[in-house]
């Protein structure tokens, strides 16, 4: 587990030609880790039939609407595999 609750993380800008469970609207955006949810096989690998798939920690990451959309006071929490995230220095 690489990130702890409270850590600031950036969702990577990834745009592969296969399935990825990284919603477009968070790519490149900075959010805060809320919790680690446990480990799961990476959908990118499973979608391509790569055996065995990489297994990674999944994190609930909270983004502010104002940063995602330029407006709004709500938050959006997205569940993201570890390799979808990078540290914010």
């Amino acid at each position: 587990m690489r990130f702890t609750p409270g850590a600031k993380v950036r969702a990577r800008v990834l745009d592969p030609d296969h399935h990825i469970r990284l919603p477009r609207y968070v790519r490149g955006q900075v959010g805060e880790v809320i919790e680690a949810e446990g480990e799961g096989p990476l959908p990118d690998d499973r979608a391509r039939g790569l055996m065995p798939p990489r297994v990674e920690t999944v994190y609930a990451v909270r983004f502010r609407a104002a940063e995602l959309w330029g407006t709004g006071t709500h938050s959006v929490t997205v569940d993201l595999w570890e390799s979808y995230l990078e540290e914010v220095p």
């Binding site: 469970r21 990284l22 919603p23 949810e37 799961g40 999944v58 609930a60 909270r62 006071t73 709500h74 938050s75 959006v76 929490t77 997205v78 569940d79 993201l80 595999w81």
Partner: peptide
């Protein structure tokens, strides 16, 4: 908030909305 109003739900201004996008296995 706009979506909720279409369901007839109007929350007081100060209520903060948390949206959860179930993108993994939770």
């Amino acid at each position: 908030r706009a979506v909720l109003s279409e369901f007839g739900v109007r929350l007081p201004e100060g209520v903060e909305i948390s949206v959860w996008d179930a993108s993994a296995e939770t």
